[in-house]
Design a protein around this nucleic acid. Structure first.
Length: 820
DNA sequence: TCCTCCCGCCAAGCA
DNA sequence: TGCTTGGCGGGAGGA
């Protein structure tokens, strides 16, 4: 409500302007001329009193007042002040509760449906809202920012937002929970509580230092904004303030609830964590108070959303205000791939809702920004650690086992593993780019977060794919001799891309990488690559713009495209074009034909699953995959499980297959399978390290091909089938002697879990005809049916065993999944 | 007295 | 240069 007090403040300004001789803080002189429409009579006076007592009447009256000239409002105001002196006047003012942000948020939410029809997008005009709710714009920002953090609204343009309602809430909460787990909030909360006990009588003493160390150990220094596919955060202004944005605070506040058990978070703890993430060295009282203020703001909005409610917790030190989560229960992350957690710094400030492919391509790289890329020791350590953890679990009795904080982190929460994997990969990639040597490696990832569905429920391939054979001779996945039936995975790579990944042997991994373009990455572009990589690592901004532009370019016009997206597209048309221009300019300045695609991310192929054929079919045709689909596949790897009954095209988001540098010990070569394929370079085999058995076992375990704890023999037998395939369909023929386009390397291994053999194959495809960078970009993301694309995925069944076969096609890259 | 949080200043940055 | 956005903290109402 635009309260009389508010009007007073406004009126004073106006009065000062219009009546320079009138002091703002003094009671204005009684107006000699009363408004003709509302003469100041005893009746009107009574009316005013009633209005003041009744918010509804007052609101109506205030609306009328707003329609009047400001001078009239002033006059009424001043008259009221004169007639209601002292306490009377104060009593006429609405109480603070009536002006609370929570109540205002209620009013705000009442304007929009919880679940708006996609066809009826609600647009929020801040001017209208502020006028109708009679509040300052500033207050609306507070509400909108929190709502935006939950993806209930998204900024469309200046002064304009789109109302999404609660459609995105489950996904958002799941994403937040995931990120919260990764951010080790549980440990932080425990640490803070521990500190409170230890320093009960030393509130200021050494706590800061210890807090800093505890937070520093987890390196949670960056605020990030968790995004959802299709609901991209578009900061009004890309500036440093966004790191302290109410949005980010809101998300992190919610994370605390989602990871806590019970889901009660005190403001004090929340503030400390937020401060700890923000500035460890400034744990002063004023900052703490400010944080608390903001948390109250957020809490008010969340309370209005009925996501939390105020409670009090009584501890040794007294009664503390806290909030309890009353929102929907967020189940364990079984569909992480639907979610996205991206640092705000990575968020294109002007991109519109980056849909499907691009979003998907990001999704496997859960937030936390650059620390993901800077904090790591080595993959070997990681793998060993995970293996040890797994062994602990495997060997543990059924009774609960106390897990240390560190163990906890790496163990049950697979996304952490992936994130660290990615961090390692990222880091190593940077080094790769510096040395201008890259080599394909085999990698994979992706443990099943949930029990694998029954075959009846999941008739097709359920194993996540993520493994792909290396392009080089040094590459050698584990292969077992059992070839009863096989599942083949093939990743088709553009030769020009393949030749750029030659340094470190083993593997691929879907990971963030400013990489690849249709024309390939030239070796002499390492500087460029390095530059971009560095930018990404340091600021997370390097790949932003390409991401945005590409996302915009790839965005298909589909039925699924919401009106808001269209509107957004319109509103973003200019920025996008600017980005394109800028990118083209950059390309020109770099004197390279390369088109750097946005930083890729592990792809949530679950986005593109086939779970709902009817639902997906139209979108698939248009190149858009529903993000709502339940996925059978790994959230990490590139597997697209395909029920045999759904032999049809499935589009997948664009993703990047990039080399994963697995730090391998030289002796791991001994464990490498023997590659007899002549197309493999034997010298590379010996010169480049191969995946250690532990690493391979880790990977195989995580893609669900072997049970945890089971070790694949270190001397697998590789069976490869030379394949020549210039076409984009899989065919088998003789191989050649070089790793060139059209060459296929295949190998198999037996999965005791699936009781079937898996055949992995790698093929290099003939590049498409050169195109202009601009066009290339378009083509890269062109949806199936486009000139350079073909059905992304197909599958079939032989009826004898779980069988699926599919070809995941990415321009210049092709991933085939087949299972016999 | 402390909790709660309204309120609006004012800076950043966009158009 | 004006406007939008939103960080920030004073300070007042409420418990």
């Amino acid at each position: 409500l635009k309260t009389p007090l508010k009007q007073a403040s406004t009126s004073q300004l106006v009065l000062t302007e219009r009546q320079p001789d009138c002091q703002p803080l003094t009671t204005p002189p009684k107006l000699k001329e009363t408004p003709p429409a509302d003469p100041w009579t005893p009746t009107s006076n009574l009316k005013m009193l009633i209005s003041a007592a009744s918010p509804e009447i007052r609101s109506r009256e205030q609306r009328r007042q707003l329609s009047d000239s400001s001078s009239e409002v002033l006059q009424t105001k001043h008259c009221l002040q004169e007639h209601l002196l002292g306490d009377e006047y104060e009593k006429s003012q609405p109480s603070r509760k009536e002006k609370s942000l929570g109540l205002l948020c209620h009013k705000f939410l009442a304007r929009y449906p919880d679940y708006p029809s996609p066809s009826q997008k609600s647009y929020i005009c801040l001017d209208e809202v502020t006028e109708e709710l009679h509040v300052e714009r500033r207050r609306i920002y507070d509400i909108v920012n929190v709502l935006e953090s939950l993806h209930m609204v998204s900024r469309l343009a200046r002064n304009r937002y789109v109302w999404h309602g609660r459609h995105n809430l489950p996904q958002t909460l799941q994403a937040l929970k995931k990120v919260g787990e990764e951010n080790k909030y549980i440990q932080q909360i425990q640490m803070i509580k521990k500190r409170e006990y230890e320093h009960e009588f030393d509130p200021d003493g050494e706590r800061n230092e210890e807090m800093a160390s505890s937070f520093g150990s987890s390196e949670q220094s960056e605020m990030s904004f968790v995004e959802l596919p299709g609901v991209e955060f578009r900061a009004a202004s890309v500036n440093g303030r966004k790191y302290k944005s109410l949005r980010v605070m809101s998300q992190k506040f919610v994370m605390l609830f989602l990871v806590s058990t019970p889901q009660i978070v005190s403001l004090e703890v929340a503030a400390k964590i937020l401060i700890g993430e923000d500035q460890l060295e400034d744990l002063d009282k004023s900052k703490f108070k400010t944080k608390i203020r903001r948390l109250y703001d957020i809490a008010n909005v969340l309370s209005s959303l009925k996501l939390i409610k105020k409670v009090h917790v009584t501890e040794e030190r007294g009664r503390k205000p806290a909030f309890k989560w009353t929102g929907p229960e967020v189940l364990p992350n079984t569909q992480d791939t639907k979610l996205e957690a991206t640092s705000t710094t990575c968020s294109p400030p002007i991109s519109e809702s980056i849909p499907s492919k691009e979003q998907c391509s990001k999704a496997l790289f859960p937030s936390k920004g650059k620390q993901n890329f800077t904090r790591h020791s080595s993959l070997i350590k990681l793998v060993k650690s995970i293996e040890n953890d797994r062994r602990k679990i495997q060997s543990a009795p059924t009774s609960p086992v106390k897990i240390s904080a560190s163990t906890y982190q790496s163990l049950p929460v697979f996304p952490n593993t992936i994130a660290q994997f990615s961090a390692v990969t990222k880091h190593q990639l940077e080094e790769q780019s510096k040395t201008e040597e890259m080599q394909m490696k085999c990698a994979l990832s992706s443990p099943e977060a949930v029990p694998k569905p029954e075959p009846s429920q999941q008739p097709a391939l359920s194993q996540p794919l993520g493994v792909c054979p290396a392009s080089h001779s040094s590459v050698s996945p584990v292969v077992l001799p059992h070839l009863q039936s096989g599942v083949s995975y093939a990743i088709y790579l553009h030769p020009s891309q393949a030749h750029t990944v030659t340094t470190y042997s083993p593997g691929f991994m879907l990971q963030p990488l400013p990489c690849a373009n249709v024309t390939g990455i030239k070796s002499n572009n390492s500087k460029i690559l390095n530059k971009i990589t560095t930018e990404e690592g340091d600021t997370q901004r390097g790949p932003d713009e390409p991401t945005k532009s590409l996302a915009a370019e790839e965005r298909p016009e589909t039925k699924s495209e919401t009106s808001s997206q269209r509107c957004l597209k319109r509103s973003q048309a200019l920025p996008e074009s600017n980005l394109i221009k800028r990118r083209k300019s950059d390309e020109e300045s770099l004197d390279t034909s390369l088109t750097f695609f946005p930083s890729g991310y592990l792809i949530p192929l679950t986005h593109c699953t086939h779970g709902n054929k009817a639902e997906c079919s139209t979108k698939e045709k248009a190149g858009v995959c529903s993000l709502q689909h339940t996925a059978y596949s790994s959230p990490i790897t590139g597997v697209i499980p395909m029920p045999a009954s759904e032999l049809k095209t499935v589009n997948i988001p664009a993703f990047h297959i990039t080399p994963l540098n697995i730090m391998l010990s030289p002796n791991s070569i001994a464990a490498a399978p023997v590659l007899s394929n002549s197309c493999l370079n034997s010298s590379s085999t010996s010169s480049a390290p191969n995946p250690s058995s532990s690493a391979l076992n880790f990977m195989l375990q995580h893609i669900g091909l072997i049970p945890a704890g089971v070790q694949v023999p270190a001397n697998p037998v590789l069976q490869h089938v030379p394949v020549s395939s210039q076409s984009e369909n899989i065919s088998h023929s003789s191989g050649s002697t070089n790793v060139q386009e059209g060459k296929v390397i295949e190998f198999t291994f037996y999965s005791p879990i699936n009781e079937s053999n898996f055949l992995f194959s790698l093929q290099f495809l003939q590049p498409k005809e050169p195109q202009e960078p601009q066009a290339v970009t378009e083509n890269f993301f062109r949806t199936p049916g486009g000139p350079n694309t073909e059905p992304a995925l197909s599958a079939n069944s032989d009826g004898t065993q779980r069988t699926s076969q599919g070809t995941l096609y990415i321009p210049q890259r092709k991933l085939e999944v087949s299972e016999d």
